[in-house]
Design a protein around this nucleic acid. Structure first.
Lengths: 149, 149
DNA sequence: AACCAAAAATTGTATCTACAATAATTGTTG
DNA sequence: CAACAATTATTGTAGATACAATTTTTGGTT
């Protein structure tokens, strides 16, 4: 559906104003569908993001600051996110031996298990994005990268 | 900068997975720049969104439910957002005479004034989106609309 | 009229966020 | 080596969000 219908706005000041609203609106939609599919697994999109980052470097742990800088939303508080995941047994935290300021985070077997169960459902979630063709997806990625400059 | 660099991820499972992350990441970036420029005016992006909606229909008031369905982020609590704006004197709330379940919201002169001051700065904010051409902006809008199906 | 269902908004509450302040450890430099 | 600066993480706290439960009012049905 067109953005104009979705938020009932007839016209935008310019194509660029519309880009801003369109990116924000599409993101909100995407975030919500993601939150809904993750909910039965007991994690939020932000927590999922952290788990994905940790799986990416597994079995090598990552320090907290590095987790933050790889996150989609940098403004999330990694300390508290990681603590939530630790309470659920999905990650492990250890103060780094070499540099005791740092905290090394790694994903646990249980964490990997949760992710692999989510993986099985991921294709059907990604399928909801296949209203566009692969080449349109490439073009979208190219333009978004360029947009951020 | 490329998304891969921004979040330090070398590769994505597919172009569609990348679309999901790219839209979320770009939106987070956009939201934050918007929050920063609005802050000196004492309002948040969500509050700004509500004010824009009310200016769009001014001088005709809109009921609360209608505000919600025009918002970019539908999950915001319109009652509380409007109450914040009312406390600042930027909007007016009146229970509708015909149907006392409804609450009619309208923007005040002060609210219009705040928006007009923001308008003056808006071009320079929108200018940060002009790394892409107008035709790329159109293409981006087209693909995002199609993506949501 | 009495009752029930629907519409519209508000409220309760646990959780989360923003962001500044603090703490702990390490590195540097006079 | 003492003092200070920088790095890394945690905490405090006011405000915001998610979402379910509740309230108020209206419309419809018997």
């Amino acid at each position: 559906m067109s953005l104009e219908q979705d938020i009932k706005q007839e016209k935008f000041e310019s194509e660029f104003h519309k880009v801003a609203v369109n990116v924000l609106f599409t993101s909100s939609w995407l975030y919500n569908t993601n939150a809904v599919r993750l909910k039965p697994h007991g994690i939020t999109p932000e927590q999922y993001n952290v788990l994905r980052i940790l799986r990416g470097s597994h079995p090598k742990p990552i320090m907290l600051a590095e987790v933050t800088c790889r996150m989609i939303d940098k403004s999330s508080n990694a300390t508290r996110l990681v603590e939530k995941l630790r309470q659920k047994g999905l990650v492990k935290r250890e103060t780094c031996a070499n540099n005791r300021r740092q905290v090394d985070i790694s994903i646990t077997a249980k964490g990997l298990d949760v992710l692999s169960r989510i993986d099985k459902e991921s294709e059907s979630w990604v399928a909801t994005l296949k209203n566009i063709s692969k080449s349109e997806a490439q073009e979208l990625n190219r333009i978004l990268d360029k947009l951020r400059g």
